[in-house]
Amino acid sequence: MIITISGLAGSGTTTASKILSKKLDVPYLSAGDIFRQMAAERDMDVLEFSRFAEENENIDILLDKKQAEIAKQLAKQHDNVIVEGRLSAHFVEADLKVGFIAPIDDRTKRICKRENKPYEVVKEEIISRSNSEAKRYHEIHGIDINDMEIYDLIINTGNFNAERIADIILKVIEVISCQQ
């Protein structure tokens, strides 16, 4: 089973994906890690690279292509794979597509804790990055990042901790497996 997990910055996709990966003992692929690696290769932080990507649509196209290719390779080697990224559900053929939503205050607090930055700085970065990504995704792929119809399951992660979120996804996997 291939599972995609998508959501905006700070919605908990990475944390929940890692927990789920451990619980299922399956590989986990992060588009964010690929994006951060691409930024580091150009000596840029994520925000700088995000702005750079606005002017260079090949960055997003390359990222989406890399993610889909790596996911296919992992799926050939393993029965189950978790692919986490903003657009994973759009570019990876998956059996279960999960979308995370969360209030901006919750997302901001999570990133503040993770990156040890002041709340207002993080909130401004989230808004800037979200606007940049939404613009790029629409211009390059015609994707409205706020359209949730592609997802089989949508979880408001502001209401649950990461462990419970992984448990919810596990229950859905259990139901899907029973139906097959």
Rank of each mutant, 00 (worst) to 15 (best):
E41M: 00
R42Y: 12
D43L: 12
M44N: 10
M44P: 00
M44K: 11
D45S: 02
E48K: 12
S50V: 03
R51C: 06
R51Q: 12
A53T: 02
A53F: 01
A53G: 07
E55F: 11
E57W: 14
D60N: 11
I61A: 09
L63W: 10
K65D: 12
K65L: 09
K66F: 10
Q67T: 15
Q67Y: 07
A68M: 09
A71M: 05
A71G: 11
K72D: 15
K72Y: 14
A75K: 14
A75N: 11
K76A: 12
D79H: 13
N80M: 14
I82M: 09
E84L: 10
E84W: 04
E84C: 05
E84Y: 02
R86L: 09
R86S: 06
R86Q: 13
R86A: 04
A89I: 03
A89G: 13
H90E: 13
H90N: 11
F91E: 06
F91N: 09
F91W: 08
V92L: 06
A94T: 01
D95Y: 04
L96D: 04
L96G: 08
L96E: 03
L96H: 09
K97C: 02
K97F: 05
K97N: 06
G99F: 01
G99C: 02
F100H: 09
F100E: 06
F100P: 03
P103M: 00
D105I: 08
T108I: 02
T108L: 04
R110N: 02
I111R: 03
C112I: 00
C112Q: 14
C112N: 10
C112W: 01
K113S: 15
K113Y: 13
R114Q: 15
N116L: 08
N116Y: 02
P118E: 14
Y119A: 06
Y119Q: 10
E120H: 15
V121I: 15
V122D: 01
V122E: 10
V122A: 03
K123C: 01
K123A: 08
K123P: 00
E125G: 10
E125Q: 14
I127P: 05
R129W: 06
R129Y: 03
S130Q: 15
N131G: 11
N131K: 11
S132P: 07
E133P: 06
E133V: 03
A134C: 06
K135R: 15
K135H: 10
Y137C: 07
Y137P: 05
H138N: 15
E139L: 13
H141I: 12
G142P: 03
G142T: 14
I143T: 12
I143N: 08
I143D: 06
I143R: 11
D144P: 09
D144A: 06
I145S: 02
I145E: 07
I145Q: 11
M148C: 09
I150C: 00
Y151M: 07
Y151Q: 11
L153A: 05
L153K: 08
I154C: 03
I155G: 00
N156W: 07
N156H: 08
N156F: 07
T157E: 08
G158E: 03
N159E: 12
N159D: 13
F160A: 02
N161S: 09
E163Q: 14
E163A: 08
R164W: 02
R164K: 13
I165L: 05
